[in-house]
Amino acid sequence: MNTTLLVFRRELAAYFSTPIAAVFLVVFLAGVAGMTFFVANFFDRGQADLSAFFLWHPWLFLVLMPAIGMRLWAEERRSGTIELIMTLPVSPWSLVVGKWLAAWVFAGLALVLTMPLWVTVNYLGSPDNGVILMSYVGSWLLAGAYLAIATCMSALTKNQILAFIGAVVVNFLFVMAGFDLVLAAVRPWAPNVIIEAIASLSFIGHFQRIAEGVLEIPALIFFISLIFFALWLNVRILEVRKAA
């Protein structure tokens, strides 16, 4: 079997070999339900759509995705197993991609478990299911981007808490890139091109365009290339740490 798939299978099994998976799924579903029903007032809106549900994903994922990704490398560094896996005759790419893929599929499973909501809106009214499907795709890609950054941070340290905090901070910057909080810091001195470039990195902007239901090719490309870049950086971090 392909070594990437072997790593993927091992890592996915590792999530389920401890109560962590169950705890995470419960927290995720409770968080999603809480946001949708109590913060976004799903029922009071009187609309048969799921925008109240997807609206909060960038914020919920901001904390939850680093929690899934933090262990991927930090745990191996702590226990020393990194030495085992890095001296197997395989490319670091298969390790990096396999690990990320396991976390991403796990996040996808968490999303699948929210589908009763989808069934509910179809029962209550007639939503645009195409929009909802695209929103799910966008949400999963967003999760993938958060996770790719979290995996990267995890490769920097043997401390899972540090990996978690680092991932939340970097992800937060990407979320806020389109907001004044970040833009105000560069506006006084940077030319317009740079300000626009930074604003265009915003996770929320891209996610919302996908969640509106338009098949936003640039937004899809944005997430896919960001994931690819973060995974490449992850491989580089592993190589650089060998020389450190």
Binding site: T81, L84, T87
Partner: peptide, 16 residues
């Protein structure tokens, strides 16, 4: 490919 390596402390995956 030609190497078998037992690292310091014999690290293993405890959950497997």
């Amino acid at each position: 490919r030609q190497l078998g390596y037992l690292p310091e402390g014999a690290p293993l995956y405890p959950d497997m």
